[in-house]
Amino acid sequence: MIIGENIHKSFGDLEVLKGVDLHVKPQEVVVLVGVSGSGKSTLLRCFNFLEMINSGKITIDGHTIDPKKENLSKIRAEVGMVFQHFNLFPHKTVLENVIEAPITVKKMKKEEAKKLGMNLLRKVGLEDKADVYPSKLSGGQKQRVAIARSLAMEPKVMLFDEPTSALDPELVGEVLQVMKQLAEEGMTMVVVTHEMKFAKEVADRVIMIDQGTIIESADPKTFFENPQSERTKQFIQLVE
């Protein structure tokens, strides 16, 4: 579904990604872990072209993307993204947040979009909040709206950039629950997270990124019980 080949990315003199290869299969749930600054969030942002790679190749759904020639908006519409800080539109109600892109980008009729929006809000358990503004929601509710907003574009793959890191501990569960449900429905997902319980329960594959390269890639059982690299062993001890 998403294939990254030999991805390099630098910010000025700092090389953040040093030749990353990642192949995410359809319906696969891949969890990226690593210490902060390891490059895992940057990799995710490259897949959505919020950051432009310096060299390498990104293929989405069988289509290799040349950022200079393509309409990046069209590609981004197919790749959903959920942010650490939600980034809901504060001047729009919950429902307006969800239906904004279908109406503006897909030119969907308002009535149709509203129906879609209400269905998605029901799915994340927030249909009763349709008409309130984001400032009235808890962090967990905001993130569930953000997920619904992303799903409204019917993306082929969803990227999650530390979706629960900004949440109070008691609100983490409701967001992970929604993500787990999405995974069960067969959504292809790439998740950067520090929630190891989620990685163990939901991931098909856990990948450890360290200093801009992939140093471990395995199914969750092998990853946590029998890691190969020293750095991964240290990391697992640190987070558990």
Binding site: V79, M81, F83, N87, F89, E100, A101, V105
Partner: peptide, 22 residues
């Protein structure tokens, strides 16, 4: 907040739509 632009772009809205609507 730059995150507003990013969220809008990530939904497939182009630069003009992002400026006008968000």
């Amino acid at each position: 907040d730059p995150g507003q632009r990013e969220a809008s772009m990530s939904l497939g809205m182009n630069r003009k739509q992002t400026m006008q609507r968000i």
